[in-house]
Amino acid sequence: MKVLVVDDSGVMRKIIARGLHSLWIDEVVEAADGVEGLAMFGDGSDIDLVLTDWNMPNMNGLELVQKIRAAGHKHPIVMVTTETEKSQVVKAIQAGVNDYLVKPFDQEMLQLKLQRVLPNPQTA
Rank of each mutant, 00 (worst) to 15 (best):
Lys2Pro: 01
Lys2Asp: 01
Val3Pro: 00
Val3Cys: 04
Val3Arg: 02
Leu4Gln: 08
Leu4Ser: 05
Val5Ser: 06
Val6Trp: 10
Asp7Ala: 09
Asp7Leu: 00
Ser9Cys: 11
Ser9Thr: 12
Ser9Ile: 10
Ser9Asn: 09
Val11Ala: 14
Val11Trp: 05
Val11Thr: 15
Met12Leu: 11
Met12Asp: 05
Met12Tyr: 08
Ile15His: 08
Ile15Met: 14
Ile15Phe: 14
Ile16Pro: 04
Arg18Phe: 11
His21Tyr: 15
Ser22Cys: 09
Leu23Ile: 12
Asp26Thr: 12
Val28Met: 02
Val28Cys: 04
Val28Asn: 00
Ala31Val: 09
Ala31Gln: 03
Ala31Glu: 00
Asp33Tyr: 07
Val35Pro: 02
Glu36Gln: 14
Leu38Gly: 03
Ala39Ser: 13
Ser45Lys: 13
Ile47Ala: 01
Asp48Trp: 03
Leu49Met: 09
Leu49Arg: 04
Val50Glu: 05
Val50Cys: 10
Val50Asn: 06
Val50Met: 09
Thr52Tyr: 10
Asp53Gln: 11
Asp53Glu: 08
Met56Asp: 06
Met56Lys: 09
Pro57Val: 12
Met59Phe: 11
Asn60Ala: 13
Asn60Leu: 10
Gly61Asp: 06
Glu63Lys: 13
Glu63Thr: 11
Leu64Pro: 00
Leu64Cys: 03
Val65Leu: 01
Val65Ser: 00
Ile68Gln: 00
Ala70Pro: 04
Ala71Pro: 06
Ala71Gly: 15
Gly72Cys: 11
Gly72Asn: 11
Gly72Met: 10
Gly72Ala: 12
His75Leu: 15
Pro76Arg: 05
Ile77Trp: 00
Val78Lys: 01
Met79Asp: 02
Met79His: 09
Thr82Ile: 08
Thr84Cys: 11
Lys86Gly: 01
Gln88Ile: 05
Gln88Ser: 14
Val89Trp: 06
Val90Gln: 13
Lys91Ile: 04
Ala92Cys: 08
Ile93Glu: 07
Gln94Ser: 12
Ala95Pro: 01
Gly96Lys: 02
Gly96Asp: 01
Asp99Met: 07
Pro104Cys: 05
Phe105Lys: 05
Phe105Ile: 10
Phe105His: 05
Asp106Thr: 11
Gln111Lys: 14
Leu112His: 11
Lys113Glu: 04
Gln115Pro: 01
Arg116Ile: 08
Val117Asn: 09
Leu118Asn: 06
Asn120Thr: 12
Pro121Ala: 03
Pro121Cys: 02
Pro121Tyr: 09
Ala124Lys: 14
Ala124Glu: 10
